[in-house]
Design a protein around this nucleic acid. Structure first.
Lengths: 207, 207
DNA sequence: ACATCAATGTTGGCAGTGTATACATAGATG
DNA sequence: CATCTATGTATACACTGCCAACATTGATGT
């Protein structure tokens, strides 16, 4: 029965609608309070309709996390592209982009890294491989920086892991609220990211 | 009515029992799947008994997170104490202790930093102040290292934040499963932590 | 010694949750 | 135009957090 003019029995585009609405809900209430039934209501469908598009709640969250990793890959790559040929600046801007994205989307970031999603051990599924993409960009960046003699000749994966950890840690501390008062505003974050990463590059020991 | 010999109407020590049992449950099923009712069953009390000791679920989780921060403070301080007078080694061992603790208690670590607990903006409550304690130890360590000329003469808080971010990021990447295959075993973690922190100290730029 | 009270427990109930099952509809395909 | 399959709905169940009313008991003051 099509009660009103615009309403059809088949939604037609529920998959994308659900993801978009879910992101909104998570932004509002956090990944913890997010519920499938409220999502269905928001999308204007019955509370079991989402199961035609996602195996279960976890699968939907995983899909959202994946979009998060995609934009993370995009943003960091774009940031790096703007300083092609300058690995040092590239590394800094990549980090700033990483942290800024996390600050702009704290709830999604928590969803991505907060253990809300069961990933069945360590399968190289879409989700993880998408995260690998972001990491791979970093690896490439460092590799080229090594070859041009800017970065030390250490194992590339190790250098990448160090920079990733640094930036990721800062992002998680901010989104987790551990840095309240220290890093709330946007410009503070950029400033902080830059300084912290400079420290990683220059080292914190005297010479 | 006291049915059997050992059973009393008043448990007598429910508060601690609940926390201990909750930690076990969270270890088993993750902070996400943890439920108050299952906890009550495990503790052998009715499903509302926990409410006599904790305002709500969030309060219980906060209490558990607080114990987590306490042990974090202990472990890192103990690690530092063992190398008194050697700030560089102190910093490394502190970081290793941090990451190892996270690896040993991934679910609790997620609980502490994964956004499961509503902290009402940024109140300086027990939870946060306990986290501050761990950070303060790091600040002191770096301050003394600066005075003995080992660490660069940068703003102490910034140096502390950088080292904390680095170590925290590594810990979160490991517990979040992002480093599957790279850092699973205990000795791998120590090795990785040491290397990564050495990089932070020495810097990753060529000189 | 006894009444009283506050702390700590239980029972029952409610709204909300994830998800399994059976059924309804409609767009696509032969 | 019949049929199939994708997509949506209705219903039901076990489970959840939490509230309100009641029960038990150890502690307290007189």
């Amino acid at each position: 029965m099509s009660k009103r003019s615009g309403e059809t029995y088949h939604h037609g585009n529920l998959h994308e609608t659900l993801i978009a609405a879910a992101i909104e809900l998570i932004r509002d209430k956090g990944p913890n309070a997010f519920s499938l039934r409220e999502l269905a209501k928001k999308a204007g469908v019955s509370h079991t309709a989402p199961y035609r598009h996602f195996k279960d709640k976890n699968a939907l969250l995983a899909a959202i996390a994946e979009t998060g990793f995609k934009t993370l890959t995009e943003r960091t790559r774009n940031a790096a592209m703007q300083f092609d040929g300058n690995p040092k600046q590239q590394l800094i801007e990549t980090g700033v982009a990483y942290v800024e994205l996390a600050l702009d989307n704290p709830e999604i970031t928590l969803l991505m890294f907060g253990g809300f999603i069961d990933t069945e051990k360590c399968p190289k599924e879409n989700l993880d491989s998408e995260a690998d993409n972001a990491f791979q960009g970093l690896v490439n960046l460092i590799e080229s920086g090594k070859q041009s003699g800017v970065f030390r000749n250490e194992e590339t994966e190790l250098l990448a892991l160090a920079t990733w950890s640094m930036v990721h840690g800062l992002a998680m501390l901010i989104t987790g609220g551990q840095l309240c008062g220290i890093a709330d505003e946007q410009d503070q974050v950029r400033n902080l990211s830059e300084k912290v990463e400079s420290l990683l590059m220059e080292g914190i020991l005297t010479r």
